[in-house]
Lab assay of single mutants.
Amino acid sequence: KTVHVDGVEYRFNNPEEADKFVKRLVKEKNGNVEVRGDTYHVE
């Protein structure tokens, strides 16, 4: 899984860790998540 945040790319081998990371980011930023294939885009 890959997570894109503000143009920075984070790669996770463990999908659960990627999910936790995304949830935390969305809370912090009050942002939205767009999923494209295996990539999460957080804005």
Rank of each mutant, 00 (worst) to 15 (best):
K1W: 15
K1Y: 15
K1T: 14
K1P: 12
K1D: 02
K1V: 15
T2I: 14
T2S: 07
V3T: 00
V3N: 00
V3Y: 03
V3A: 00
V3H: 01
V3G: 01
V3E: 01
H4N: 11
H4Y: 15
H4V: 15
H4G: 02
H4I: 15
V5W: 11
V5F: 11
V5L: 05
V5S: 01
D6L: 02
D6P: 00
D6R: 01
D6G: 07
D6V: 01
D6T: 00
D6W: 04
G7R: 00
G7C: 14
G7L: 01
G7I: 00
G7A: 01
G7M: 00
V8G: 01
V8Y: 05
V8R: 06
V8E: 03
E9F: 07
E9A: 07
E9L: 10
E9N: 02
E9M: 09
Y10P: 00
Y10W: 02
Y10F: 06
Y10G: 01
Y10N: 00
Y10D: 00
Y10T: 01
R11D: 03
R11G: 03
R11E: 06
R11I: 11
R11A: 07
R11F: 14
F12I: 01
F12R: 00
F12M: 00
N13A: 12
N13S: 13
N13Y: 05
N13H: 07
N13F: 07
N13V: 07
N13G: 06
N13W: 05
N13P: 11
N13I: 05
N14A: 02
N14S: 14
N14T: 14
N14K: 03
N14C: 11
P15Y: 09
P15A: 13
E16L: 04
E16V: 04
E17A: 06
E17R: 00
A18N: 00
A18C: 11
A18Q: 02
A18H: 01
A18R: 04
D19L: 15
D19S: 04
D19R: 08
D19K: 09
K20L: 12
K20E: 15
F21C: 00
F21H: 02
V22K: 04
V22I: 13
V22T: 04
V22Q: 03
V22G: 04
V22L: 12
V22N: 06
K23F: 03
K23E: 14
K23W: 04
K23Q: 13
K23P: 03
R24Y: 14
R24S: 13
R24P: 04
R24V: 08
R24D: 15
R24Q: 14
R24F: 11
L25V: 09
L25K: 05
L25A: 05
L25F: 07
L25T: 04
L25D: 04
V26Y: 10
V26A: 10
V26L: 14
V26C: 15
V26E: 13
V26R: 08
K27P: 03
K27S: 11
K27H: 09
K27Y: 10
K27N: 10
K27I: 10
E28F: 06
E28Q: 06
E28K: 05
E28Y: 10
E28H: 07
E28S: 07
K29H: 14
K29L: 15
K29M: 13
K29T: 12
K29Y: 14
K29R: 09
N30G: 14
N30D: 10
N30R: 07
N30T: 05
G31S: 09
G31W: 14
G31E: 07
N32E: 06
N32A: 09
V33M: 04
V33A: 05
V33F: 10
V33N: 06
V33D: 04
V33C: 07
E34F: 13
E34V: 13
E34R: 06
E34Q: 09
E34A: 08
V35N: 07
V35Q: 07
V35C: 13
V35L: 11
V35P: 03
R36T: 09
R36S: 11
G37D: 10
G37M: 06
G37V: 13
G37P: 07
G37A: 05
D38W: 02
D38S: 03
D38G: 05
T39I: 11
T39N: 09
T39G: 12
T39V: 11
T39L: 09
Y40A: 09
Y40P: 06
H41Y: 15
H41T: 10
H41S: 09
H41K: 08
V42R: 05
V42Y: 07
V42F: 12
V42H: 05
V42W: 09
E43A: 12
E43Q: 12
E43G: 10
E43F: 15
E43H: 13
E43M: 14
